[in-house]
């Protein structure tokens, strides 16, 4: 039996909104530690890995591990029936064929309840190898979104070059080219606006603009985003949550 209560429906709504274009059907793995989701997009180029830990719920109970097969388009329809500020409760029995989604307004005078039919999903699970990343860049998530948006109209690819001096995003297309360079900076009163670079060696990766921009749907979940890069390896784009994380992996574009 799963029972998870979130004080604000907006967190779950935003998470689902952020991944539903990449992933259609997926299993939500429920354990005593929390809710997790791991799924590749249909073209097998990117991977979504979500963790909502139990301590992020105001009430959480999961006696037995459950895999809830969910169609995210359908879940979105149901989540839109609730307001952002509503208290959200997710409930499923051990052999339930549906997930019960309950909304309660803050005045506690309106309760609504919806049931989402569950599916049997035979999902491939990927083992993500331990990677020694050459660079870790933490920057404002809105800045990352802006760069991806701006470069989207110029090129299908963005190259990220990271050195000690800064991180440079470059794009090259039919109409011309562009680049944005960010230098590490710090501001004690506004840490969310800082750019931080941890580097063991310079690294360069070329990545699909379309996918990077898709990851930016998670911008509203966190003020900061961390990009982890290693040569000829998938990039890790991580949005930390107050209790858990939303991670995206994207395979690089490599020269033949």
């Amino acid at each position: 039996m799963l029972e998870g209560k979130l004080e604000q429906a907006s967190l779950f709504k935003k998470v689902v909104e952020a991944v539903r274009e990449l992933v259609q059907d997926c299993n939500f793995d429920c354990t005593e530690n929390g809710l997790a989701l791991q799924a590749m997009d249909t073209s097998h180029v990117s991977l979504v890995s979500l963790l909502l830990t139990a301590d992020g719920f105001s009430e959480y109970r999961c006696d037995r591990n459950l895999a809830l097969g969910i169609n995210l388009v359908s879940l979105t329809k149901i989540l839109r029936c609730g307001n952002n500020e509503d208290i959200l409760t997710l409930e499923a029995g051990d052999s339930a064929d549906s997930l019960v989604v309950r909304f309660e307004n803050t005045q506690q005078d309106r309760m609504s309840e919806y049931a989402l039919k569950l599916m049997d999903i035979d999902q491939e699970h990927l083992g993500i190898p331990e990677t020694e990343y050459a660079a870790s860049i933490t920057m404002p998530s809105t800045e990352f979104q802006r760069i991806c948006r701006d470069m989207q109209s110029i090129s299908e690819s963005i190259t990220i070059d990271c050195t000690k001096g800064g991180v440079k995003f470059t794009c090259e297309g039919d109409i011309g080219s562009g680049s944005v360079t960010l230098k590490p900076n710090s501001s004690a009163d506004k840490p969310e606006l800082c750019t931080k670079i941890d580097l063991s060696e310079p690294v360069s990766l070329t990545l699909s603009t379309k996918y990077l921009l898709n990851f930016c749907k998670a911008t509203g979940l966190s003020q900061q985003v961390t990009l982890k890069l290693a040569d000829e390896n998938p990039i890790l784009v991580e949005y930390p949550l107050s209790a858990g994380h939303l991670r995206f992996y994207l395979a690089p574009k490599l020269d033949e």
Partner: peptide, 14 residues
């Protein structure tokens, strides 16, 4: 032009 790789080439199925 660089070629988009499949994620399966980096991560193994379990």
């Amino acid at each position: 032009t660089p070629i988009q790789n499949d994620l399966g080439e980096f991560f193994s199925m379990i």
